[in-house]
Nucleic acid binder design. Structure first.
Lengths: 143, 143
DNA sequence: TTGCACCTTAGAACCATTCCAATTTGTTGA
DNA sequence: TCAACAAATTGGAATGGTTCTAAGGTGCAA
């Protein structure tokens, strides 16, 4: 079975879990995110998706991205006012924002660190998620 | 010397350091941020500032906020697509975003933790700043 | 095979922000 | 003191990302 087929089935499954349908648009949008993990904006996804599905509309791309976020297949990332970016990496990770290049890199986080971070919360604060963003420059490229 | 006067002088000093002038607009915008530290948007700042300076324009509020950020007197905060929020708290701190109320709380961070967090960065990544955002619900109000 | 809920689509509308050109204000040095 | 120049403010227009709306398509379920 090809990777694409496998992803499509995993997607169909997750969508079904939420009572939603799998559609060509949703499949292609998801494939595009998995294929090039450079935190694209909705516009960039739109451009990439069009080569496989020329009649798709921008509104649909927004809809699909929103759906994927709801189904926990994709994370929406916002830092620095500007377009939302999308990330199919579901492992716990931080983002490193390179101020020179504007590129965003994923940084894996040991679960031990996440616990440590959450432990600074005073009583009465119940965090469902933690997001960590680094800003600076990357002197060498990473994966 | 009143607090307001003291703040105004600190502001004038910081502005002068960058070769900028202190103006009534900049003073009032800064006062407004210091007075109610609830991470207001530019629009909210605009509304609050108008009571003291009825002829100020929204464009000026944006300009002043940008200036204050440049002078390191204020932090601009962006999470959740939506308007930028402004925060006069300069101590290292994280933000806790209460998903029920939409309110944002400051969480002080021990410098020891910041070091720990930064230590997860692989070689080649040089972080100038770290931002930490919690999301969840606050079962009791804090400060 | 008809009905109905879900999806997609194009374009209009929206909202936060930035840009622009025209004043106003402040500062400097003649 | 004043002229001249720079810095700052203003209102409105323009922009860019996103959401809304209304209309048309698609596919499962009785």
């Amino acid at each position: 079975m090809s990777t694409a087929t496998h992803n499509a089935e995993a997607l169909a499954q997750k969508l079904a879990d939420s009572g939603l349908r799998s559609t060509p648009q949703r499949e292609v949008v998801y494939e595009v995110l998995l294929k090039k993990r450079d935190h694209p904006t909705a516009d960039e996804v739109f451009a990439r998706v069009k080569s496989g599905l020329p009649t798709i509309s921008l509104a649909t791309v927004y809809n699909c991205l929103e759906t994927l976020v709801q189904c926990d297949l994709v994370r929406a990332v916002n830092f620095e006012r500007g377009p939302t970016r999308y990330c199919p990496n579901l492992r716990p990770h931080a983002h490193f924002h390179d101020e020179q290049t504007g590129k965003t890199h994923d940084i894996d986080l040991p679960s031990e660190l996440l616990e440590k971070v959450s432990s600074v919360l005073p009583a009465g604060y119940d965090a469902k998620s933690v997001e960590i963003i680094f800003r600076g420059k990357a002197t060498k490229a990473a994966h």
